[in-house]
């Protein structure tokens, strides 16, 4: 067991695992790593349990120093990785000697890199999860300089050998398969038909709560009035009064009062949404 010292926290780096689903009825968001495939890969590459906690960076990486020798890996958004100033592999387990600094650099494409350490980040779990929930404030605080993070004991599984896979390329546009409902009938038929032909852009005000869109035609309400707050799911596409769709990500509120025009199913599309930079074109396609 060891601990990590945060040398440079980066723009927004949080501890994330699989989150705390199952507590929505108490007003607790699910939270958890946004790019679920990159998160799972990071733990697999280190022989960690699939629910071990890792760090999720935002655009400009993080720098850490280990108190004792450990093994780390960086997945998700591709970025330069250095140990004691020397370039090391991205996407492959590398040894981090005691006292050496791991520098995870700015994402070359995508948004969020995942930094895993063998044994996992071992901060105290809250309701079964170590995830930082930026909406409700549950879980450990956002990383800050000088903070230390405990690392858990390495499990029985060995660090696997090479696990060859392609570097994820940033898609030129974000395609989101959308299943209409439950409140598609709150919008005019013409604006719904137009949704499938429209191109939006990822708004810079997007965050872990939701991917906001801009630049596309606003959806037009077919009815007046307010919707009483109702339960929201991951991937729900909520339409606030400005008519521009918001795709709910892991830190989304458990209830909401704006109509949901459709839902993007969990999996590759939401993983891609987690890596889509502001300005990326967004299109909604009919889910099969």
């Amino acid at each position: 067991m060891t601990e990590l010292l945060v040398v440079r926290p980066g723009a927004l780096t949080t501890v994330q695992d699989r989150g705390r689903p199952g507590h929505a009825h108490l007003g607790v968001p699910r939270s958890g790593a946004l790019d679920t495939a990159a998160y799972a890969l990071a733990n697999r590459l280190l022989g960690n349990p699939p629910d071990a906690a890792v760090l999720e960076t935002t655009l400009d990486g993080v720098s850490l120093r280990a108190a004792a020798l450990t093994v780390v890996v960086v997945t998700g958004a591709p970025c330069p990785v250095r140990i004691s100033g020397r370039p090391v592999a991205w996407g492959a387990p590398v040894g981090l000697p005691a006292g050496a600094e791991l520098e995870v650099g700015r994402a070359e494409s995508g948004l969020r890199s995942y930094v895993a350490v063998r044994g996992g980040i071992a901060v105290a779990p809250v309701l079964g999860s170590r995830s930082t929930d930026l909406l409700s404030g549950l879980g450990p605080p956002v990383l800050s300089a000088g903070m230390t993070l405990p690392v858990g004991p390495a499990g029985p599984d060995p660090v696997p050998g090479a696990d060859a896979y392609g570097l994820p390329a940033a898609p030129p546009e974000l395609l989101l398969p959308l299943r209409p409902g439950p409140r598609a009938d709150w919008f005019t038929g013409a604006s719904l038909a137009g949704l499938w032909r429209s191109v939006f852009r990822v708004s810079p005000s997007s965050n872990r709560i939701g991917l906001r869109t801009e630049g596309g035609p606003a959806l037009v309400r077919a009815r007046a009035g307010e919707l009483p707050s109702e339960g929201m799911v991951l991937g729900a596409v909520q339409v606030p009064p400005d008519g521009l769709p918001v795709v709910f990500l892991a830190d989304h509120p458990v209830t909401g009062g704006y109509p949901v025009v459709g839902v993007v199913g969990p999996g590759p599309a939401l993983d891609a949404a987690a890596q889509a930079r502001p300005g990326t074109p967004v299109r909604f396609v009919r889910a099969r």
């Binding site: 009825h25 707050s229 339960g231 209830t255």
Partner: peptide
């Protein structure tokens, strides 16, 4: 059922 979420006029069954 993973989540059973009552609200003002609805109950959501998720998962």
């Amino acid at each position: 059922v993973r989540d059973l979420v009552p609200a003002a006029r609805t109950v959501l069954l998720d998962g």
